[in-house]
Amino acid sequence: MIMSSFDYLKPSSLEEASKLLLENKNSRILAGGTDLLIRMRGGEVKPEKVIDIKNIAGLHEITWEDGRLVLGAAVTWTRIKEDAKIAEHFPALTQASAEFGCYDVRNRATIGGNIANAAPGSECGSPLLIYNADVIVYGPSGERSIPIDQVWLAPGRTNLAEGEFITKVSIPLYPASTKSAYRRISRVEGQDLATCAIAVMISNPEEIAAREVRIALSAVSKTPMRAAELESFLSGKAIDGETINFCKSWMHRNLYPRASSLRGTPEYKKIVLGNLLEDILREFGVLAGELI
């Protein structure tokens, strides 16, 4: 199908981009384009204006400031994947980047675009949730920061106001002893969307009483989600076979993935997520003894 026509605009400042976005109700922000152009080609979205933000200074930068990693919205997944310092501090994000699309797609697709698309199984979802990232947006009233767990409302819908767009993602650094990981399964190895995915972070893994566990799940609800109940269950306690069995049964009792998914049945996803959680805890070395 041929795309319907539109005007291509390339603002060079945040103010200009926000103004264009506000003035043109039927407009779309273009970053990497790997989702937007497909949806435009399919006729799913027909913007009259496409606003390319790649010409705005600062949106391509990866910076480390005041104990935080700040990724510009236009930073590509290839750059995230190849950044050794990100791998050192945020392994779950690096592991997600390695699963993301394929070479060609990673070379264009951006972190900001992935957040803005608000897909339930988005690669950035679970890692940004466990790291308590903040999404920085710019709009008519200037800059504001939205905690990541308040960004996504439903598939394709975010909490951004009119005229606002994502400019940065800011992630706090954690002590070196913190462990984190991302695992997903997909129908084929290589280029496919996640059937489901999980990210786990453990602070103070060596001191059981001081342990804080964070768990996020993707592709099992309308948006990527934190599993708060599981987190408080696992935090501050020794983890053994019995604990793991509770986690697995929790998945069965509390998750409601949609039955119409092309990629996996609800039952399958729940089993897989329990198993992936066990794998990660075992890798972290916090799982005592064998499973019963």
């Binding site: 291509y8 390339k10 273009l30 384009g33 790997t34 152009l37 497909i38 080609r41 496409v50 390319d52 790649k54 290839t78 699309g101 394929c102 070479y103 060609d104 797609v105 070379n107 264009r108 280029q191």
Partner: peptide, 26 residues
């Protein structure tokens, strides 16, 4: 034309990209 098959791959500024997913103006 959806960035899935790779038949349109070219190298753009040193990186392999799907040329079906790049607007010419970009």
């Amino acid at each position: 034309e959806m960035g899935e098959c790779g038949a349109c791959t070219v190298i753009m500024n040193g990186k392999a990209v799907n040329s079906c997913l790049v607007l010419a103006v970009e």
